[in-house]
């Protein structure tokens, strides 16, 4: 048997890293359940089962061993991220189609773990929002706004059977997201200040969803602390988003929301700590990561402010994923002993 040094390795493994990411999502999920009911747990479970089943089927088709890849937890991350990006009251087939597409097409057709150029969860999201835009807007009214809240049994009825309690329509139960509302109301001529007075908004961004974002950030800080993710991407992303939003807000506070609103609305926090930090499709060099995260922040802001989609995080991730090979080539660091004649 041929052996090459080194003969010792650090204990961390891919599956541990992925497991930590899953753990870090738990505070966010807990907040989600508190404000929007347990329906999201059903989505996560559905997505997880679909992801593992699709992963197993694809591995079988590609003649790869099942065990190491099913236990690497990467499919679960895709499943969870996708489930968290969907409206909680999504019909079961929406979750299944999105997850299956993410795993089968955007992950395995590109070569499986480590070879997917795009973030699979975001591909799943993009496919769904383009194919089924109507179903992607049914966001439940958060707890504490005095809206009608369905029981868990009623939620299950809708998810699996499409049946709503008699006398209720989907429109009565759901509402547009804070980002969406902002966009529509601005079009109607209201100022940001007026819009923010509406009950769906909280202190920072959307009522309820801002707390979910804070919980994501807490999970992200755990990931930073355990060095699962590199600090550069979340920092650059958030700072750039803050600066761009801040410039627009300072120039025209009537039409542009405050930077903190951008931080805590939509999927910005989820993106900063969980989506853009996905290493596979991300840049690997120092300067590359700055460009990658800053670009993502710019695209997020542009789509949110000027685009027709409610949030820009998914498309920011995908668009920057495309640029990564080029960014990496551009930003190769200087090698030891090749730094301008060695000082």
């Amino acid at each position: 048997m041929m052996w090459s040094s080194p003969f010792v390795t650090q204990a961390t493994s891919v599956s541990q890293i992925m497991l930590r990411v899953l753990l870090a999502l738990i505070p966010g999920i807990a907040m989600y359940v508190w404000f929007f009911g347990p329906a999201v747990l059903v989505s996560i479970t559905l997505a997880s089962i679909t992801a593992l089943a699709t992963e197993a089927a694809m591995l079988k088709l590609r003649n790869r061993p099942l065990k190491p890849f099913l236990t690497d937890n990467s499919a679960l991350i895709t499943a969870w991220l996708l489930a968290l990006s969907l409206p909680a009251l999504a019909p079961w087939w929406l979750v299944v189609v999105g997850t299956a597409f993410a795993i089968a097409v955007s992950k395995h057709l590109y070569g499986g773990l480590g070879n997917n150029p795009f973030n699979p969860a975001m591909i799943g999201y993009a496919v769904l929002i383009i194919s089924f835009p109507a179903h992607m807007t049914h966001w439940l009214t958060p707890h504490g706004l005095g809206g009608i809240e369905l029981s868990f049994a009623q939620q299950l009825d809708y998810i699996f059977g499409g049946i709503l309690p008699s006398g209720l329509t989907l429109d009565a139960l759901t509402m547009a997201t804070p980002l969406d509302t902002l966009k529509t109301q601005l079009h109607l001529g209201l100022s940001v200040g007026d819009i923010r007075e509406m009950p769906i908004y909280g202190r920072l961004a959307g009522h309820g969803s801002e707390m979910v974002a804070i919980a994501y950030a807490i999970g992200g800080i755990y990931l930073l602390y355990t060095r699962v993710i590199n600090w550069l991407i979340p920092t650059t992303y958030l700072v750039t988003l803050f600066v761009i939003a801040g410039i627009f807000h300072l120039a025209d506070p009537v039409h542009y929301a405050a930077p903190l609103f951008h931080w805590f609305a939509g999927a910005a926090m989820l993106g900063a700590f969980f989506i853009f930090t996905d290493p596979v499709g991300g840049s690997t060099t120092f300067r590359g990561r700055i460009i990658y995260a800053a670009g993502a922040a710019l695209i997020t802001f542009l789509i949110r402010t000027f685009g027709s989609f409610p949030d820009g995080v998914a498309f920011a991730a995908l668009l920057m994923n495309i640029c990564v090979p080029l960014i990496d080539i551009w930003t190769q660091p200087k090698v030891f002993g090749k730094k301008g004649g060695g000082k």
Binding site: T9, S13, D72, G114, T284, F336
Partner: peptide
């Protein structure tokens, strides 16, 4: 010295690049 664990595909986490004393990009 436990036997080497089976190798998984590279996930481009770039931990190797962070550890490289020659400033190389081992993942590339």
């Amino acid at each position: 010295f436990p036997p080497a664990e089976p190798a998984m595909p590279c996930i481009r986490c770039a931990r190797c690049a962070a550890a490289c004393p020659a400033d190389l990009q081992p993942q590339e």
